[in-house]
Simulated scan of single mutants.
Amino acid sequence: MSTVINKTGAEEVALNLVDYGTGQPIILIHGWPLSHKSWEQQIPALVAAGYRVIAYDRRGFGDSSRPWDGYDYDTLASDLHAIIEELQLSDVILAGFSMGGGEVVRYITNYGEANIAKVVLISSIIPLVKQHTDNPDGVPSEKLEEIAQALQDDRVGFLKGFHEQFYGVDKDASAVSQGQLDYDFSIAAHAAPQATVKAADAWANTDFRAECAGISTPTLIIHGKKDATVPFETAAQQAHQLIANSLLVTYDDAAHGLNVTHAARLNEDLIGFLKT
């Protein structure tokens, strides 16, 4: 493991990352409330396919620094930019899972597409999670407020059950093992409390719809039809409509955590897209 320092104002944030393989670089950006370890089943496949795979812990999560502030998407995108600059990467592929899709889109908005070869959005929150009159399929505000309150009142208690819906265990007990649930809980529970709360506010309330229209990079969107965490209709379906040069691949039987439950299929679809 190594670290990249991003200095924002007077504050320096150390971003923990792994860097494996050679070839065209692909940066993997994890979802909330986990760490780079959530890419465990994708990293070996991508390295074997000939890519340089970089996966990092978002600030406040995993082994990265835990500043009090800086969990808005502009700052998170600046962390991604610092990694690309420090490692002197070019012709980069950006892959964002769930919340990580926001860093991808905001990076392109703030830093442009000149150095980005392809984009992948997996179970992504893009373009908008929250329900509005013009986003009727979104998650109702009261539900998001319940999550925010639960994180304030009993963060660890909330996280203990979070991944059951995440993987669809509430509908299919065999979706993942108890070991996987315990592993994810351990990672999530050890994230910084303030990061967990403030990052949730970012993914719940940021509207990327206007930004999506500015993306011309070839984009693969993969999403499960049974995703109860980030609904297909308000996320992938809309993202595909807004991002002109996008390909939508739907997993009819997948919940949110398809990087684990459908790892083999995801790896095949991902590598197939990257090779075209």
Rank of each mutant, 00 (worst) to 15 (best):
G157Q: 09
V119W: 01
R155Q: 08
K171E: 14
F97K: 00
G179R: 14
A173D: 11
R155S: 03
G179A: 14
M99P: 01
N135A: 11
P136W: 07
I108H: 04
D154K: 05
E145R: 09
H132S: 10
A95R: 00
V197N: 04
L181V: 12
L151V: 03
G168L: 06
L121Y: 06
K160D: 08
F185P: 07
S98G: 02
I125A: 09
Y167A: 08
N110E: 10
Q131N: 11
H163G: 03
T196S: 09
A200Q: 13
E113A: 15
I122C: 10
Y183R: 14
D153C: 07
H190V: 01
I126H: 00
K118E: 10
Y107M: 06
H190F: 07
Q178K: 15
D154Y: 06
D170M: 02
G168I: 05
D153S: 12
Y107S: 00
R106M: 12
A188H: 03
A175R: 10
V156D: 15
A192V: 06
P140H: 12
W203F: 14
I215L: 09
A150F: 09
T217W: 03
N110I: 00
T196D: 08
E146Y: 12
Q178N: 15
E113F: 04
T109K: 14
L151K: 02
K171A: 15
Q131A: 08
A204K: 00
V119C: 03
E211F: 02
S216C: 06
I147N: 05
R106Q: 15
E142G: 01
V104T: 08
F208P: 03
S141D: 14
S186Q: 11
L94N: 04
K160Y: 13
E211W: 03
F208L: 09
A213R: 15
K118D: 09
L144P: 04
A202W: 01
E145C: 01
L94R: 05
A200M: 12
G101Q: 07
V129Y: 02
R209T: 13
S177R: 06
D137Y: 13
S216P: 00
G96H: 01
F166K: 02
I147D: 04
G157R: 08
G112A: 13
A199V: 03
A173P: 08
I215M: 02
G161P: 05
S174L: 10
N115Q: 15
P140G: 12
V139T: 15
W203P: 00
E211N: 13
A213Q: 15
G214Q: 11
T133V: 12
L94A: 11
D154I: 03
D182A: 13
A188D: 05
Q178S: 14
D182T: 08
S216G: 11
P140Y: 10
T196F: 03
D134F: 12
S124V: 01
A200I: 00
L94T: 08
F166Q: 01
F158D: 09
Y111L: 09
Q194D: 12
A150V: 08
I125D: 00
F208D: 04
A95T: 10
A199R: 00
G96D: 02
I187H: 01
K160P: 02
A148E: 11
A200D: 09
D172H: 13
R209L: 08
Q131G: 06
T196G: 04
N115H: 12
A173N: 11
